[in-house]
Design a protein around this nucleic acid. Sequence first.
DNA 1: TTGTATGCGTTATCAG
DNA 2: CTGATAACGCATACAA
Lengths: 332, 332
Amino acid sequence: MGKKGAKVIATLKDIAKLADVSVCTVSRYLNSDIVIKKETEERIRQAIKELGYVPNVVAKSLKRNETTNVAVILPKIDNLYYAAMTAGIGEILGNHHYNLFIYEVNHLNLDEREVLQLMRENMVAGVIFIGLSYDMSFKDSIQILLDWNIPVVYMNRQIPYNGYPLIYPDFMKAGGLAAEHLRGKGRKRTAFVYKNKSSEFIQSNINAYKDAYPESDELIMIDLDGDMDMDRCVDRLLEEKADSVFVLSELLTANLTKRLIQRGVRVPEDIAAIGFGYSLISEISTPELTCLDFGDKEMGRKGAELILSQIHKKKVEPVTVLPVRLVEREST
Amino acid sequence: MGKKGAKVIATLKDIAKLADVSVCTVSRYLNSDIVIKKETEERIRQAIKELGYVPNVVAKSLKRNETTNVAVILPKIDNLYYAAMTAGIGEILGNHHYNLFIYEVNHLNLDEREVLQLMRENMVAGVIFIGLSYDMSFKDSIQILLDWNIPVVYMNRQIPYNGYPLIYPDFMKAGGLAAEHLRGKGRKRTAFVYKNKSSEFIQSNINAYKDAYPESDELIMIDLDGDMDMDRCVDRLLEEKADSVFVLSELLTANLTKRLIQRGVRVPEDIAAIGFGYSLISEISTPELTCLDFGDKEMGRKGAELILSQIHKKKVEPVTVLPVRLVEREST
DNA sequence: TTGTATGCGTTATCAG
DNA sequence: CTGATAACGCATACAA
């Protein structure tokens, strides 16, 4: 349609012919390492323009045995936190002219080994894993990528160093920030409310909390699993005469706060609420929620830098811990 | 380290040698079109296993002059709607063993032409654009992809057909659903509240509304731009004695509702609120918001199918309009 | 400063 | 049923 039927794709050879030089000279011009005579350069430039030449990075990748594609493997892309991390990753990658592959493992009907094999089949330059706190996925099988010399970054989970760089927010500090904040508000009977968290994750938060606020009462632990629904959770809070909740999820904080108010409990007067996570959820809630900002997007940026450094054969820190921030709002 | 120093990557040639067959036989075995003698097949299988062979899809792509990578170009990935669409796209692509590239154009410091060139450089099999309603990006420059024989789908915007398939929710129907709903609730003085929408978009919503509810009072139009902040918007609603608002954004609906309640207006008793968009925002809000579900994820799925069909040289509908659903909750 | 020749790993076209 | 051999588009060692 456009110009003259099916457009044929111009290659290096075509422009070499048109510019009356060798393929190799054109390649040199494009990758501009070596100097070229001004005159021939002009002919090449003309030919490129005339034929609308676009380089073929697939061929280049094959030849150079490397791509500029980085893969992100995550549990769920339509989740504000993972999306924010992904945005940060994409920003840095874009700045460095790298492309971003997304693999949402929930959708992929493949086992871990197959997903990892996909990475190598596609010759990705590096892989960033975004981990769920209650999910052990890939933690062990990742080794195979290292065997294949594919750089890896593991993001958002505090796990022991195991040969690939880790980057995660300072979850320990989070517990401490919450503790100090609630102490400042004169709260002593705090409940930990959570769902789908590993016991190590819970325990380390408890420790951080107690360290920062040793004179607090014994923590009331509420795991929202099967039997324990939101209403029973509220019952429990009232029975225990809790004066505050520390919820390990922003959405859970919003839902719990809403339920408390429906049940006639005043927030923060009767029970103060503070939650994990800083997105529009805590801002939309009524009352607006005091929450912990884990800097998801910044973590994405930093993680991308970690993967790029490795791709460029630079040494990187084994473990990067990012600062956490407490955002005070109405719910405390 | 792993096994024996730097692991060498096995190629077809290597397994051919080990299995004592020709390269081409191995290739045939892998792509299993033609039948192979049982015995040699077994030798090949053995060799593949022994050498841990993984195919190189970059080489394959070069040879076959096509990839299995689909690009999604969107304004912002850390946005619930676009993320939901992306999730739908990824689900279908994954099922068909296609990979998903993400290009967040806000981040890319490139002009449109360069972004499109990126698509061809990387030999993507197809491109899905996710459009903002107030953004004209790429609408015209897309033609160049068609010239290059790269299939395209344009998602989430109602624009005139221009040579590439369109898929979007039935925005017209949305206005109608809202109108019918408010009529059913006996509301007559409705305000349209919006921000960053094109005048065509506004106008077509007005038309849809009036068609479905002709006996309604004249609509009160409130554009939340520079001067018009949320508080002035509330003032205006009270002055005009509005009994309902139809907000063309879910987040805006949540914020407006919150502000109304802070100002002592009862929702829905004094003013009923209904908004565009169905995500956790409307569920978290107090009161929970009646809203219009545009089926973002499903649109993603359908869009992915559209691109796959084109890649496989099948004819596709020029325009696909997806149904919209009204979700009734507390705010009306 | 430029050209020739080779190969990256794969598929496809021939023969055998 | 199987095997040479030639591409695909590009980068590069080596010559000139």
